[in-house]
Computed example of a mutant assay.
Amino acid sequence: MADSATGLVLTSPEGVRYRFDPGALCLELLLTGGPGEIARYELLHEPAGLLEWVVHSRLRPTPELRVSGEELAGTRRVRDALWRLVWARTGAGEESVEDLGVLNAAAARPPLVPALYAGGVGWALGPATGEQLLSTVARDAVALLGGPHAGRIRECGAHDCRLVFVDTSRPGRRRWCSMGRCGNRNKVRALRARQHLEE
Rank of each mutant, 00 (worst) to 15 (best):
R152G: 13
I153G: 06
A150V: 00
A107P: 01
R79P: 03
A73N: 08
V137G: 07
E98Q: 09
E71I: 14
N104W: 11
E131R: 15
A138Y: 00
R84Q: 00
A141S: 04
S135E: 12
R152Q: 09
V67T: 11
G151M: 13
R139M: 07
L133Q: 04
E70D: 09
V67I: 15
A138G: 08
G122I: 00
G151H: 10
G122P: 07
N104A: 15
L116I: 12
A81G: 05
V113I: 15
L72M: 10
A124L: 10
Y117S: 06
G146Q: 05
A150F: 07
T75S: 12
E98M: 13
S96P: 02
V142P: 01
V97P: 11
R139F: 08
A150S: 07
G74W: 04
L100K: 04
L103T: 10
P114T: 01
D80F: 08
G74P: 08
G69H: 07
S135A: 15
D99P: 09
Q132M: 05
G151T: 00
L133F: 02
P114S: 12
V121E: 12
E71D: 05
A92T: 10
D99L: 12
A81Q: 08
L116Q: 14
L133P: 00
A88E: 07
E131S: 15
P148D: 12
R152M: 11
E95C: 06
A108L: 05
V86M: 06
G101C: 07
A108P: 01
E98W: 11
E70T: 13
R109L: 13
H149F: 15
L144Q: 13
R89T: 03
L65M: 06
L134R: 03
E71K: 15
A141T: 10
V113S: 14
L100I: 05
P110I: 10
N104Q: 13
S68H: 12
V102R: 00
V121K: 01
R84T: 04
